[in-house]
Design a protein around this nucleic acid. Structure first.
Lengths: 140, 140
DNA sequence: CTATAAACGATAATTTTTTTCCTTAAATAA
DNA sequence: TTATTTAAGGAAAAAAATTATCGTTTATAG
């Protein structure tokens, strides 16, 4: 995802293309998932006098517009990611790393709808465990 | 879940049995899922000069001890519930109601482990949608 | 029944998030 | 391209949420 595409996405949502916003999205593009503090640090590196409020306001408005998504994690601070197809999150309880894996939630959805009568719109799935690297380290 | 059982559970975890704690657990038993404000209101009804800090401290220590569980929901404040077998949460986007449904997460877990190499310990699944009652109301 | 350690309530402190307000910069139209 | 407008930025204050402190009270082990 290059700068021009990000800019286009912003414009499509009637959001101005600012350096701070570009940096936020680029950082998420690079690291996948970042919490508010990490994002602030990232943007600050490029724009030292960015305000934390700016980061807050931007993730809020970009989330409202569906460009970003907030992922609430058990035990830790929420992270943000660039919105893409629905997927599932793996969260390493040792190192905190977060990974996306694609997964078809259709079965879950069908089951839930059948059992409950709800009309399901979206699903949030976070699996907590130990990543391969941390498993290896633990064995040493 | 009656008072005596709650008391036993608390004692098993070396937590003193106080009226405030009993009320918290009883409220969760009655309503299923409550956020911090609702819990505070509930306890306050029975014990008008309970401190909000007491509610915070108690849900924290009971959560640490595995008696309660915190459920993080997209878009809204986290709620607490009494810990039981792993299950799935349905959250109505209209009325905010939360429902538990039982669901075997084994397939998801197996898939995730196979694809990622993670060793999965737990899963958090929240489905967002419209409950039957709100679907009916919407049609009127 | 007493001693002790945990929990309580009140409050302060901290942390997190949102709002305000004035200035600056991006977008739109001339 | 320049001028106008409107959104966004930064700094700071305010608000909201959570945690810590401390003297007092209460549950429980002995």
């Amino acid at each position: 995802m290059d700068k021009e595409l990000i800019a286009t996405n912003l414009r499509n949502h009637h959001l101005k293309v600012t350096p701070q916003r570009l940096k936020i999205v680029e950082s998420l593009n690079t690291f996948g998932h970042l919490n508010i503090d990490m994002l602030y640090q990232e943007v600050k590196e490029a724009y030292p006098n960015v305000s934390l409020a700016t980061v807050y306001k931007n993730i809020a408005i970009m989330t409202e517009n569906g460009l970003l998504e907030k992922v609430k994690l058990p035990e830790s601070k929420s992270v943000f990611e660039i919105r893409k197809e629905p997927h599932l999150h793996l969260h390493c309880s040792k190192c905190g790393k977060i990974e996306d894996i694609s997964f078809d939630t259709e079965q879950i959805r069908a089951h839930a709808e059948a059992v409950s009568g709800y009309s399901i719109q979206s699903s949030d799935i976070v699996l907590r465990g130990v990543c391969p690297a941390c498993q290896t380290n633990a064995k040493k």
